[in-house]
Design a binder for these strands. Structure first.
Length: 505
RNA sequence: GGCGCUUUCGUCUAGCGGCUAGGACACAUGCCUCUCACGCAUGGAACACGGGUUCGAUUCCCGUAGGCGCUACCA
């Protein structure tokens, strides 16, 4: 059992876009698999035909491609344990349902959903279990011939797991330790529905994990209450010796207020809760995605890895290789983690700085182009090198550095008031004359000549530079002045100076 | 309601019987400076509460309170 090859899976339901919490679960599975030289499986749990959403599967796959989380096998990846789409495994589940039925560990029930709803309305805390099952319409309470007749007559039925009450069921969780529950509180879960000939999550999950030789089940905490049921299922099948180890991850909580993280929180506070932008096929509503919002996949991965886990040291910036090396399920926190989107933004900032100027320039180029500006790669790279440390997102580079590409059309009022003095026009005209006389317009030479001139005239550095900045930028921001004039060039610099003198007087 | 999980600065967390309770984000202040940022430095800021166990509890146990989850023919 210990020498089995590590195999883990991420098994979403294609009911819509992948939630960021799901992304974290997948990431932890991935890190764990890679650390142990194991396999990472992508399985699709599409056993609820009513909730199928067009495009969700491709969305999920594309999300992981963007994040760099790679699967070894599964839907669209191939593998020897397929099919990996549960809707294509009907015959397999039927076989195992029969095994349970034949062993008297499950039974057939005819109660309709409506009848059950009625029952729940009538009786407080009604539960379909050992205490009530004999008063319901099922193969335990009805004669065999009648059951057969109903089935033959095409009546829809479900198969329920027959849970023996009064048993202490123990789940050994890697993160939480021993969790014990009394089987009496469990209900006779529906395992299979004849209506669509599909199992429910619980049965499909156990059968697939067993058949696919999954060794570790790493999933969200919302599954903890049903883990005992799953243990009981493994036991019923006689698979206890190869039962996977469980690790239930704490949930992601709203940044503020109560409850788990939802799409609404993102909308309200201005951060995405989905990896990619998603357009709801039914309503047409658009939900923002990390990718489209300008987050770098490595920043998202780094941030998510640290939300509920930490390496035990003070290192926070880690690439995926390092995460794989350090990841440890036993160091995962047990309590839910509030989603700290401000820290997410900080990570993005750090990763932009970490990237080469060339790489960032390449990402920035389409943004510049979209503003109808064309600029050569070398200049753009130079601009990026000056500006990238000042932004949290690549697209913010435009707002931060558009003065490189476009001359100011107006001058910020406050800055004018503060930086444009009565004699500024005269001094800027003098500065323009000096700059025009320069054959060498390099940043270094401009600085040398202009500073010498300021000194000889006994002007203050500030008054000249601030007015100069206002003329070139239109407001009081930006890097060192000669890093601006040097890049936009002599002609443009002189033109902007001239215009400022004309407009501001 | 029942069952389970959980509880260290505002937030993410380190801590695994003896610490001035550490780091990061955020915040504040200062420095840098031709501006705005960045960066750097400094600072404020936490063991939910009550009982035990122990020479000694943030740490172990039991309660209470809060938080979270589950309680479907959804996953």
């Amino acid at each position: 059992m210990n020498d089995r090859k590590v195999r883990v899976r991420f098994a979403p339901s294609p009911t819509g876009p992948l939630h960021i919490g799901g992304v974290r679960t997948a990431l932890y599975n991935y890190l764990f698999a890679k650390q142990n030289g194991g396999d990472f499986i992508f399985r699709l749990e599409d056993t609820d035909s009513n909730r199928f959403v067009e495009g969700a599967e491709e969305y999920i796959l594309e999300s992981f491609r963007w994040l760099g989380i790679k699967f070894d096998e599964g839907v669209s990846f191939g593998g020897n344990y397929g099919p990996y789409r549960q809707s294509e495994r009907r015959e397999i589940y039927k076989k195992y349902v029969k095994i349970l039925l034949d062993a008297d560990k499950a039974y057939i029930a005819f109660d309709t959903p409506e009848e059950l709803d009625k029952k729940r309305a009538e009786i407080e805390n009604f539960q379909y279990d050992a205490s009530t099952r004999l008063s319901m319409r099922n193969s335990l309470s009805m004669p065999a011939e009648e059951v057969q007749a109903l089935i033959d007559g095409g009546h829809k039925y479900v198969v329920r797991f027959k849970i023996e009450p009064g048993e202490k069921v123990v789940v050994n969780d890697i993160i939480r330790g021993v969790v014990t529950i009394d089987s009496s509180i469990l209900d006779d879960k529906v395992l299979y529905k004849s209506a669509d000939e599909l199992p429910t999550y619980h049965l499909a999950n156990i059968v697939d994990d067993h058949l696919m030789e999954v060794t570790h089940v790493i999933r969200g905490e919302e599954w903890l209450p049903s883990a005992p049921l799953h243990v009981l299922l493994y036991r019923a099948f006689g698979w206890e010796d190869t039962m996977p180890a469980f690790a239930h991850l704490s949930l992601l909580l709203k940044p503020e207020g109560n409850g788990k993280l939802s799409k609404r929180d993102g909308d309200k506070l201005g951060f995405p809760v989905f990896p990619l932008e998603w357009k709801d096929p039914a309503t047409g509503a658009i939900s923002s995605g990390y990718r489209e919002s300008g987050y770098l996949p490595e920043a998202v991965v780094n941030f998510l890895a640290l939300l509920g886990w930490n390496p035990g040291d003070d290192v926070e910036m880690m690439d995926v290789e390092e995460l794989i090396k350090k990841f440890d399920l036993t160091h995962c926190s047990k309590a839910g983690a509030r989603f700290d989107y401000k820290k997410m933004i900080w990570f993005n900032h750090e990763y932009i700085i970490k990237k080469s100027d060339e790489e960032v320039a390449e990402m920035f180029a389409p943004v510049v182009e979209s503003h109808g500006v064309s600029v050569d790669a070398a200049t753009l790279t130079k601009i990026v090198s000056l500006m990238k440390g000042r932004v949290n997102f690549v697209h913010e580079l435009w707002e931060a550095s558009n003065f490189y590409f476009i001359a100011p059309e107006s001058y910020d009022e406050k800055t004018v008031k503060k930086r444009w003095k009565a004699d500024s026009a005269v001094k800027m005209t003098e500065l323009a004359a000096l700059l025009e006389s320069l054959d060498d317009f390099s940043i270094e030479n401009q600085e040398k000549e202009v500073k010498a001139w300021i000194e000889s005239k006994e002007y203050s550095l500030g008054e000249i530079m601030n007015a100069f900045r206002l003329a070139l930028v239109g407001e009081g921001k930006g890097p060192q002045m000669f890093d601006i004039s040097g890049i936009i060039g002599k002609e443009e610099t002189l033109a902007r100076l001239k215009k400022a003198v004309e407009v501001l007087g």
